[in-house]
Design a protein around this nucleic acid. Structure first.
Lengths: 228, 228
DNA sequence: CGTTGGTTTGACATGGATCAATTTGAGTGG
DNA sequence: CCACTCAAATTGATCCATGTCAAACCAACG
């Protein structure tokens, strides 16, 4: 399927938004969209890196599997996010869909050419890369907290921010995009500990569970630095 | 002090190495070098971000202090590395010298202008930013390992790689650039646990301590995935 | 020497991992 | 609409690795 930028939900926030209309059209002709089902692999660690992608809708995870077969989630990708190796010859990590997703795929060569001819695109990708770096460091802080409860609280807050339309306020109510196992894998905990921490947070009145995946933040301040 | 690129030890590896001679001279005129003593602060979290820096010699850490006053090291910067916010208005984290260091400082405005006029510089910074991102994710994997011994082993290996001139082989013998406390802060452990893990690694014959800061890798393979 | 900062070692307590069993919820087919 | 199935989530009981507290050690340096 070829690209339909006009109707793209991230046309104003993805890296390609810095391009002029005709430049975008040119790039669009070289790319294509792809649907990915939950759990499906977009890129595999070690694969030759021949393509990059912008996430249009859904959510992705960047993960690796450590020596004893336990998955470790290294990054969460939200719509308008960019994944893929721009320089390294091989993919470093797996990229997998957390939920049914849609991406825009670009060949490395085409993308290189586009960056070459449109410096603004390069700058946009640089900006995004720096944001990814900050995000990664935030995750490092999060996963390094001492109490399991603090980690889970921090993750909830981060997910609430990601789910919010407003960039600076967390959503008061949102659906968890992650299973307990995935939350555990992000935080370096076990499923059981995540579950227990959540029930503790409910018990302390900081959050409430609404329906299956729903979470309501009752006391966001408490989550910031809770010894709950 | 103004810049003396001709004698710069990282003139072929830092981001500015992609510039032509005269372009580099122009950028150099806007920048200046600065000496930083061990423990000194280069940038402080929350400061208005008015400058960026390339590390010429020494080593830096990017760190933050969590709610209970414990420092968390989020990244290690080696010579030719780049630090500073290119886009965010405020610095996110502290940047501190791990050892006596020398940096090249560039004003944000000057750097923006240089990127604007020399797209190759933007691409070089993009490449570096992606490498930093990989580095950060590697750290995330490292700090997420389950056994303290594995984490310490992995860190030793990473430091050995950084200390090596060859890009793909770890140095067989090198000096630790970090105190026990700093290693603990990178790995999310305590000083005592790091110390105990090291003596365990010595006991198992994987490494040897030579002199004060010296480490000799006897069995690098063991460090990769050691249950030591 | 004595002081100081970093390191090592020991004893003990505890938070989270592990193992195991039960409950919940979302399909799926009758 | 109900019964069945399967994956995910919760809860409980136990154990161990690492945190915590405390003391001794060591090398550098005045």
């Amino acid at each position: 399927m070829s690209l339909a930028c006009a109707a793209c939900p991230v046309r104003d926030s993805a890296a390609c938004s810095v391009l002029e209309e005709e430049e975008r059209e040119a790039l669009a002709r070289t790319g294509r969209t792809r649907e990915i089902k939950r759990g499906e692999l977009l890129f595999a660690a070690g694969d030759e890196s021949t393509a990059c992608a912008t996430l249009v809708s859904g959510a992705l995870k960047v993960s690796s599997v450590d020596q004893d077969g336990v998955e470790r989630i290294l990054a969460l990708i939200h719509p308008a996010g960019f994944v893929g190796e721009l320089f390294a010859p091989f993919a470093e990590h797996d990229v997998i869909a957390l939920s049914d997703s849609r991406v825009c795929l670009f060949g490395r060569a085409d993308l290189d050419r586009a960056i070459e001819t449109h410096p603004a695109l390069g700058r946009a990708l640089l900006r995004r890369s720096q944001e990814d770096l900050h995000e990664s460091r935030r995750l490092l802080e999060l996963a390094g907290r001492k109490n399991a409860g603090d980690r889970v609280g921090g993750l909830l807050l981060a997910l609430a921010h990601a789910a919010s339309d407003s960039p600076c306020h967390p959503a008061a109510r949102f659906d968890l995009p992650l299973t307990r196992g995935e939350m555990a894998s992000v935080l370096g905990l076990t499923i059981e500990t995540v579950s227990r921490s959540l029930t503790a947070l409910v018990g302390s009145g900081a959050i409430r569970k609404t329906g299956g995946r729903g979470i309501e933040l009752l006391d966001p301040a408490r989550l910031e630095a809770s010894s709950a």
